[in-house]
């Protein structure tokens, strides 16, 4: 087990002990929520793992790096950021996918842009956001998020 995995498990254990000390009933309820979300997210996790396996076996790294690698340029970055904004994948699933893309030749900037727009911008949830908060705020937030995602990605590409 990697240090990171150990750290995450210890952190969860710590939270669990604290919660148990504070309120047994609520802790039980929390674990119920955890089991339910685990069951719900599991098939999606499995699907993405199968896709990663196929991706690594069939798509040669030079193809990946041609489209979203360093040499893909700004157009490639915009395209992958747009894809992230439109897609609706749970963020937790997007990280292994991002790792596999990085491993097979994708650029840091592209991967950062993809994850950032994926989480920050919700085209699927946009109608709801407009309904609750109004057009002005919803469009401003989502539009500006796209721009800052690109900026964050470019900085990441430079510093990493």
């Amino acid at each position: 087990m990697s240090t990171t995995a150990i750290f995450i498990n210890l952190f969860a254990l710590g939270c669990l002990v604290l919660a148990l000390v504070k309120d047994k009933g609520k802790t039980k309820q929390s674990l119920g929520v955890a089991v339910k979300s685990f069951i719900r997210i599991l098939p999606t996790v499995f699907i993405i793992i199968v896709i990663i396996g196929l991706l690594m076996a069939f798509v040669p790294p030079d193809q990946i790096s041609r489209f979203i690698g360093e040499q893909a340029g700004f157009g490639g970055l915009l395209a992958i950021a747009g894809l992230g904004a439109v897609l609706y994948i749970p963020a937790i699933i997007s990280f292994p996918l991002a790792a596999s893309l990085l491993q097979s030749g994708a650029g840091v900037a592209s991967v950062a842009a993809f994850i950032t727009t994926l989480t920050m911008i919700g085209v699927v949830t946009l109608p709801l956001e407009i309904k609750e908060l109004g057009k002005k705020m919803a469009f401003l937030r989502n539009g500006l998020s796209f721009i800052i995602a690109i900026v964050i990605a470019l900085i990441m590409g430079v510093i990493l």
Binding site: T4, A5, I8, N9, F11, A12, L13, C15, L16, A19, K22, D23, K26, T27, Q29, S30, L31, G32, V33, A34, V35, S37, F38, I41, L42, V45, I92
Partner: peptide, 15 residues
């Protein structure tokens, strides 16, 4: 890590 992550999510959403 997934079970641990789910436990953390569950705890915070209730507490």
């Amino acid at each position: 890590i997934l079970p641990a992550v789910m436990v953390i999510m569950g705890l915070f959403s209730v507490f």
